[in-house]
Design a protein around this nucleic acid. Structure first.
Length: 300
DNA sequence: AACGCGTGGAG
DNA sequence: TCTCCAAGCGT
């Protein structure tokens, strides 16, 4: 039995019951889930996805609201640029594709915030096409089971896709099933920290497990700091702006971080990224992108 | 090809 | 506490 067959059988029994996997889920709903899942765990995505889909069931619905609403709806999922890009994505889908999420890989790739993984995930899981779909889970599973390496190195798209293509069944529906199964295995069994080899369908054939499941060799990749970085300051600034019911005076934003230089850099970064806009020409009040009056009617 | 980009939970 | 890391993308 092939690895794909083996993991698919395992998936049939052990797959989590995730809402975007329900048959008949729209391509838009799949796309939203994939973007939310970029670097954010399932447990935090699930409620946000339900709320988002209820409010904006189609791309056209989302385009009826400004990006600021998408950023607010994003809540604390992290990397709020994704919310902005998802909004831009909806606009592009309406403008270029008549409001329907494209099924063509290159057209998907051309959408804002849609990269190699997400484009292939949508084409595969929403449209049933046969493409290698390689995320961090798949890279780890293949790295261990096939190559015998404890961890996959940095993503090397071309090689990873080629390696995965070798493992996929020919029939598109079965290939799609195998891809989601590999991902699921990496997510809940062949995990980064403490893999549960005892319940893994690959236990008897896994090159890594057969060689004693050695720990990674040299120094792991350097851990990224958060506390004290611009990212933290951006998060604090955005937190204020998300909850604001009107334009936020610069003075208010000044309270979130003591270091003036860093604070100014973080704010200008948010403006550069398009998440935040100065409301006045002298930049003493700020709003989330698109949050212009008449949302905030003048007091008069 | 590294790096910047949020947030919160687990070990 | 602190470190790691969770279905990446864009530059």
């Amino acid at each position: 039995m092939t690895l794909a067959d083996s993991v698919t059988q395992w998936y049939d029994i052990n797959a989590r019951d995730l809402p975007w996997r329900v048959p008949g889920t729209s391509a838009w709903a799949v796309l939203v889930s994939e973007v939310m899942l970029q670097q954010t765990p399932v447990v935090r995505v699930t409620p946000a996805w339900h709320a988002w889909m209820e409010r904006w069931p189609t791309p056209a619905d989302l385009t009826q609201d400004p990006p600021s609403e998408a950023i607010r709806m994003w809540g604390r999922l992290g990397y709020p640029r994704r919310a902005m890009r998802l909004h831009a994505c909806a606009v592009a889908i309406v403008e270029r594709h008549g409001g329907r999420v494209p099924d063509d890989l290159d057209q998907l790739l051309a959408l804002p915030g849609v990269g190699t993984y997400t484009a292939r995930a949508v084409a595969t899981f929403a449209y049933g096409q046969r493409h290698p779909v390689v995320d961090t889970n798949v890279r780890r599973v293949v790295s261990r089971a096939v190559a015998g390496d404890p961890d996959a190195g940095p993503a090397t798209t071309t090689a990873d896709l080629a390696a995965m293509a070798e493992l996929l069944p020919i029939e598109p529906a079965r290939a799609a099933r195998a891809s989601i199964a590999f991902m699921e295995l990496g997510a809940i069994v062949c995990t980064a920290r403490s893999p549960r080899c005892g319940v893994c369908p690959f236990e008897q054939v896994c090159a890594w497990h057969q060689s004693g499941a050695p720990a990674p060799a040299g120094p792991t990749r350097k851990t990224q700091k958060y506390a004290g970085t611009d990212r933290q300051v951006r998060g604090l600034l955005l937190e204020v702006l998300r909850h604001a019911t009107g334009p936020v005076p610069r003075q208010r934003l000044d309270t979130v971080w003591a270091d003036e230089v860093q604070r100014a850099r973080a704010l200008s970064g948010l403006v550069t990224d398009g998440l935040v806009e100065p409301l006045d020409s002298d930049a003493d009040r700020f709003v989330l992108a698109g949050d212009h009056p008449p949302r905030f009617p003048p007091l008069s």
